[in-house]
Amino acid sequence: VRDVATDGSRGSRGDGEAHRRWKEKILEILAEIQAPLSLLMLRLCNWALLKLLNRLFLSVQLHRGQLEMVLRAAGTPGVPLVFLSTHKSQLDGLLLSFLLFSQGLGVPRVTVGGQVCSPLLRALLGRLGGIFLPSRMEQTLSDRDDGLPGAVLATYVEEVLRSRQPLLIFLEEPPVALCLSAPAREWLALVYRAVRDGAVPDVLLVPVGIAYDVVP
């Protein structure tokens, strides 16, 4: 981020003013990516989700053997967890977050794909752990570096991994299944870059998913 800001402000007058403008831009981009977690919203959402599950499903079954494997993986010292999941329903993010949180794995940062979200829904999901690609990158997804938004996003992912916050990446976007989505490729590339550049020594990729008898 510092390198991009330095290159962008090179030749401009007033270093202090340029520094302030770049700082404001960085904070704006960061606010697009994530919001501070709200424990109150998490508790309310967990309560509401339990009520919703009782109405939508006859039962929710958790495979104990697979859960034990995930818990053992979470106990690996110094290695952040990156959960990779299929995406069958819009409920997947809430369900997986609830399950991981209820099992003592912390609140995961959940990637939200390219689907259109209202500002209110985006703000709510952000408070619950949702993270988003910056708007400029959503419009022009590519493998190339995307200037300041790309640099801020890469640094953010590095910090998430360094702090060992669980990261949940959805590989698909409903209703399209069995196809790696463009946002998923972007998030996976950021994780790869973090390991390649030495921001973290390694990551542990953990496949997870939810199967439905009937997709809600």
Rank of each mutant, 00 (worst) to 15 (best):
V1L: 11
D3A: 12
D3G: 00
V4H: 02
T6Y: 07
S12C: 04
S12Q: 10
G14I: 00
D15Y: 07
R20W: 06
W22Y: 08
W22G: 05
W22K: 01
K23D: 13
K23V: 00
K25M: 06
E28C: 11
I29D: 08
I29T: 08
I29P: 04
L30T: 08
A31K: 13
E32M: 08
Q34R: 14
P36M: 01
S38C: 06
L42T: 12
R43N: 10
C45E: 14
L50Q: 08
L52I: 03
N54K: 15
L56C: 02
Q61H: 13
H63E: 13
L67P: 05
V70G: 02
L71P: 05
R72K: 15
A73E: 11
A74K: 10
P77W: 11
P77G: 05
V79E: 12
V79Y: 04
L81C: 14
L81R: 13
L81V: 07
F83E: 02
F83H: 01
S85K: 08
Q90F: 14
L91I: 01
D92G: 09
D92V: 12
L96I: 15
S97C: 08
L99R: 03
L100A: 02
F101V: 10
S102P: 00
Q103N: 15
L105S: 01
L105W: 05
L105Y: 09
G106Q: 08
R109F: 10
Q115I: 12
C117R: 12
S118T: 15
L120K: 07
L121V: 07
R122E: 13
R122F: 02
L124I: 14
L125E: 04
L128G: 09
R136Y: 07
Q139E: 15
L141R: 13
D143H: 13
R144W: 06
G150D: 03
A154V: 01
Y156F: 15
Y156K: 00
Y156M: 07
V160S: 05
L161Q: 00
R162T: 11
S163Q: 15
P166N: 10
L167H: 07
F170T: 03
L171G: 03
E173Y: 11
P175I: 09
V176S: 05
A177S: 12
L180A: 00
P183I: 08
A184N: 07
E186R: 14
A189M: 09
L190G: 00
V195D: 08
V200M: 07
P201C: 01
D202I: 01
V206K: 07
G209S: 06
G209H: 04
Y212H: 00
V214R: 06
V214M: 05
V215S: 09
V215Q: 00
